[in-house]
Every structure is written in structure tokens, then in C-alpha cells.
Design a protein around this nucleic acid. Sequence first.
DNA 1: CACCAGGCAAGTA
DNA 2: TACTTGCATGGT
Length: 224
Amino acid sequence: MGYQVTRSPGYKNNVKNKLSSIYRKLYKKFGAQNWWPADTSFEVMVGAILTQNTNWQNVEKAITNLKKEKLLSPLKLNGITLKRLAKLIRPSGYYNIKAARLKSFLDFFIYEYQADITRMRSENTSNLRKKLLAVKGVGYETADSILLYALEKPVFVVDSYTKRIFSRHGFFKEESDYNIVQKFFMDNLDNKVSLFNEFHALIVKTAKEFCRKQKPLCHLCPLK
DNA sequence: CACCAGGCAAGTA
DNA sequence: TACTTGCATGGT
């Protein structure tokens, strides 16, 4: 009576096998991406806000400015004026908005967790995600990037590349909602932080190399 | 010159 | 819910 129960439906196994195969191909081609490039978890969280719709190279300039002024800590950063903060992060673009977003995140981090990463990490992931999403300036991708890359929670990060690439390969519609796409990956991958970390980074790498918006180089796609 | 980059919120209908 | 717009620097 048990032999059917232990086996998943074939179509699901097929999707899991395809995803796993894609991951292995990407890893073989590009290798470990070593995300997230940062000295501390706090730096990851700051970077997650600064990199919204912005090239990472520009974010690095902004973070370098903060480090030069020795301001890359929650209380120090929260102690300066919005105007000064905006000026320092200027290279990352949208600097006025991002200064306000950093402030709202700092208020949250200090008030809720006393600026203590360990305290924050000890909270239930699903509750923490809801709280992050309630912070002004933190949307799905930023919240999940913080959960995965700063707090090492097993959460899959979805971005526009993920939707573009995997919808082109027929896994779902490109206009699918964030949480639907996230569930697709989390239902079909092992629940491992290291896998989610590397897979998302490899997708970004792939998009940069092969799948740009204006010049899709799908004939070179390494996923095939 | 045009286009893009590791998004999000607010306004409108 | 679905669509539009503002935000802005720096690289190609």
C-alpha cells in the first residue's frame, strides 16, 4: 500500500530535476559567486536598500563613503542628518529616497532589535518577513535579500531577472506575482541557505552575461 | 545620444 | 486589482 505514496508525481519530479540541472550547469559555468560581498551583516542590509534598481558598482561607492566616515554602524548612521546621509550615498542614485529608506530601516532595527543582529536572527522567519515588509522602503526583494544574505534564513530571492529568464524557459508567466514565483522555487528546491544564496547570485550573473532586456542573447543561454 | 542597473511607494481609475 | 509615474547616479 505504500509504494505510490513515497513517490512524488512525475511532472513535479521533472521540474525539480530541470531546476537542479540548470543550477548545476550555471555553477559549473560561472562558479561560486561569493555573495553577499560585505564585511558585516549590517553592511548587507544597508547594501540591500542601496542596490534597489541600481548597479552594484554604484552601491560600492556609496558604502565606501560611509566607511571612510566611519559611519557604517546602526547608531552612528542613525545619528547623522538625512541631508548628510543623502550626500554620502549619492553615487547609489535615488539618494534622497534611499536616505529616507535607510532611516526608516534603522529606526526599525534599533527599536525592534536594539540594533542587535543576533536578536533579529532569533525571530521566527515568517514574522520577521512581515515586519520587514512593513518598513517603508523595504519590498519583497529587499526583505528577502536581508533574510537570506544578512540573516542566513532559507528564503529564495526573486528579481526581475528570475522572472524574465525562467518565464522564457516556460516555468511560469513573466507577470506572475512575486510570492508565486518564490513558492515555485522553494517548492522545487532543497531548503538550503547555501543553495538559495548561490542560485540567486548565479541568476543575476547569467542575466548580466546573456539575457539583457534589449539584446537577449538566448542562443547563447547557458541554461539549455 | 539612448539605455540600463541586484525596486519601491504613491497616485489614479 | 492593474496601470503609471517619480526617484537619479554612473557605466556602456
